[in-house]
Amino acid sequence: MKRIFVFFLLVNLAFAANAQKYMTKSGYIGFFSHTSMEDIKGDNNQVAGVLDVSTGDMVLQALVKSFHFEKALMEEHFNENYMESEKFPKASFKGKITNLSSLNLSKNGTYDVTVEGDLTIRDVTKKVSAKGTVEVATGSITANSKFPIVPEDFKIEIPGVVREKIAKNLEVTVTMKYLPL
């Protein structure tokens, strides 16, 4: 039910009248875990997102299965043991740029923004707040952010034997290059 809701939200956001909407279906979300034992990196280049620059609303949606790892076994463990992607195939974020007034869309440049909203992973929704930048260019808007997340916040169970190999805080990187709708 929730998935259908998020889908309609995306579609609604995309089609609501009189608004300046930007969209992408090939945005990037990656995460990075660094410990002295191992560095782990997962990349997803198939993130769908809509940004409404008149209100600052944004929705992002991604398939867990679209995260790609250098090692096939890591990808399998990520999907089967930690994220349970068959049970929880999608992750989403619905939020807002809170300092929209500092953004000048008529002038190309890079602006600092703060985004707040609900991040849903494994059907667990958590309020998050992150700082980032918005690059206004002719014909596109690129949103960038880096923020930490804690796997245990989303009921991801990491067995004791491998706990030392996975960082307590994972660094999440988001790069969304939106085009006007």
Partner: peptide, 12 residues
Amino acid sequence: CSGFLMDVLLNN
């Protein structure tokens, strides 16, 4: 095949 968002997604 990874699944479906608004589009069918294929990887690798």
